[in-house]
Each structure stands twice: as structure tokens, then as C-alpha cells.
Design a protein around this nucleic acid. Structure first.
Length: 291
DNA sequence: GCCCAGGAGTGTG
DNA sequence: CACACTCATGGG
């Protein structure tokens, strides 16, 4: 059964391949990923989004709409961010890039694994965890293991997944958190959520902001990794500590800082560290520096 | 072989 | 609070 829905603007390539989430891959013109306990297959045909699910599930469309934040008012968000002259130049080219809403636990573990690793390796580590510990939802496809299941894994088993020094963090997280903790954290104000996340093993400022943004859906979060730090220096001439850069971004981008971050991150991955394009390659010579 | 990765923890000044 | 060092490892 193929279900249809409309989410606009939406660019699956931009949204699912830029390091927000690590379990989607493209096969031909379709994107395959796992949401909850379903294999989801997506394909864009004109303005309609085709959704298939294995096993077949009438709620698949709802899962997908939540995952790509279908209710976000992109024109409104872009109008707000267009008050920044740097972003304003090319935002039209990334209208279809949406912030993703992922499962909080999967997001937390994924970004703890993401510390000091590149995206291909993160993808591999996450996939290994799922294969080793996650329930099979359809042939050859495994769900992300829940807290309880991962908590049953021994240190040796985790270390055997090629996680390196991150294995002990995953083990510690699995044993110090419960599903109840996650549900409680959903209701916390942003700063409280952030400080509680920072207190978790393997979670510093950057991971906390990623989990707040992609897991808990807090659009005011602004994660700063090495790419973002480079982008902020290159495009705005600002540097310094995480705290200083974070304050700069919060003042400048406000309640939609997360979208600003994703636009800038995408641009940096595409064009940096020496490139200048903002945002399509054709505009490589059109950047206005702000210093 | 070399460089770097969507960093965090710990110790020190 | 700000820096220096360490942590394991694979992908490009």
C-alpha cells in the first residue's frame, strides 16, 4: 500500500543526508529509513510525497509528517531569519531543508557516538548497534535498541561494535536513564533541558544542543561543531569559546536558531572550508562578508 | 601513511 | 572561566 501526503516545501535529499539523522539512505529515487518499528520508504512525485511502510501501517504518514516537522511554517521561519543579511542571500535555495524530529533516545546515543567521528563512521556505528541489539522489524532491518535493551549489553559487547572510547558512554547512558526520564525531560524549559543533558555521561555543550534540537524539537538550540565554528568565523568574523559563539547565535537568530544553524552547516559542508557559496554553488562569488 | 572527524572529560593556571 | 592534553578508530 502506498500512501500519499503533501509537505511543502520539502527536499528529501537536503533533509535526510545532512547529518541530522543517520539511518536514511537513498536507493534509486527513493529514501529508506526506520521510524519507530517501521521501515519507511519515501519518494517525491511532484508535490506529493509517496509513503510506504514495512510492515504496512496506516499511521506511516503521521510518523513521516512528525519526523520532517510538517507543521513548521517554513515561510515564517525564513522571513524571521532573513533579517540576517548573510542568510538572506541564499535561503531560497534551501527552503526544502527541514529540521528533523527524531526519537530522543536514538538521537542522544547517535550524537554521543558522533563525537570526534565523521558521518560515514557515525552511520556505521549506529547501524552496528541496531544490527546487534535492535529488534528486526522486517527482513534484514533492525529498529534502534531501546534503553532497556541497550542496558543489557555488556561493556565487552558494546566495545565490540567498533565504538572506540564511546562504548563506555553508551553503557553509562543506558544504565543511568529510563524511559520515564525522557518523558519528564520533554516538559522541561529549554535551559533546564539543556543543563540536564549536559550532566549526562558523554554529553557536552554540542551534543546537548543537537539532542535538544533534533530529539526534543527545540528550534532555539544551536549546536556548534568544528564546521559551524569555521562557518561563524568565515561568514561573521566571530570566534571564541562555545559560550561566546552560542550567545552570538542566540542573539542573532533567536527562536529559530536551529534552522539558521542547519542552513549554515549545510553551506559549510557544501562549500567550506575555503568555499564561499551561500547557498548554491552557482553563487560562490556572491557572499558578503560581515566584518 | 597522513589527516581529520557534527567533542567530551579531566587536570591546570 | 579558559586553555592543554588525552581518548580509540576508521574514512577520505
Amino acid at each position: 500500500m502506498t500512501y500519499e501526503t503533501t509537505i511543502a516545501p520539502l527536499d528529501l535529499d537536503l533533509t535526510l543526508s545532512c547529518g541530522q539523522t543517520f539511518r536514511w539512505h537513498k536507493e534509486g529515487d527513493s529514501w529508506k529509513g526506520i521510524l519507530g518499528r517501521r521501515l519507511i520508504i519515501l519518494r517525491t512525485r511532484g508535490r506529493t510525497l509517496e509513503v510506504r511502510s514495512e510492515p504496512d501501517d496506516g499511521d506511516a504518514v503521521a510518523l513521516v509528517r512528525e519526523h520532517v516537522r510538517a507543521d513548521d511554517d517554513i515561510p515564517r521561519i525564513q522571513r524571521r531569519l532573513a533579517s540576517d543579511p548573510v542568510l538572506a542571500r541564499g535561503m531560497r535555495d534551501v527552503r526544502g531543508l527541514r529540521i528533523v524530529k527524531t526519537d530522543e533516545w536514538e538521537c542522544l546515543v547517535s550524537f554521543v557516538l558522533a563525537t570526534y567521528a565523521n558521518i560515514p563512521r557515525i552511520t556505521r556505528m549506529v547501524e552496528t548497534l541496531c544490527t546487534m541489539f535492535g529488534d528486526e522489524v522486517t527482513e534484514g532491518v533492525h529498529a534502534f535498541p531501546d534503553i532497556r535493551r541497550l542496558g543489557q549489553a555488556s561493556e565487552k559487547e558494546l566495545a565490540g561494535c567498533g565504538l572506540g572510547y564511546r562504548a563506555k558512554y553508551v553503557g553509562a547512558l543506558s544504565s543511568c536513564l529510563t524511559g520515564g526520564d525522557i518523558r519528564r525531560m520533554r516538559r522541561l524549559p529549554f535551559e533546564d533541558l539543556r543543563s540536564e543533558l549536559v550532566g549526562l555521561p558523554g554529553v557536552g555543550n554540542k551534543v546537548a544542543d543537537c539532542v535538544a534540537l533534533f530529539g526534543f524539537g527545540r528550534l532555539e538550540a544551536f549546536p556548534i561543531d568544528v564546521w559551524m565554528a569555521r562557518a561563524l568565523k568565515r561568514l561573521y568574523g566571530v570566534g571564541g569559546t562555545y559560550k561566546a559563539l552560542h550567545e552570538f547565535a542566540s542573539d542573532r537568530f533567536g527562536e529559530y536558531a536551529g534552522y539558521a544553524q542547519e542552513y549554515l552547516y549545510y553551506n559549510e559542508r557544501l562549500c567550506g572550508p575555503r568555499g564561499e557559496c551561500l547557498f548554491s554553488k552557482e553563487r560562490a562569488d556572491a557572499v558578503v562578508r560581515q566584518d
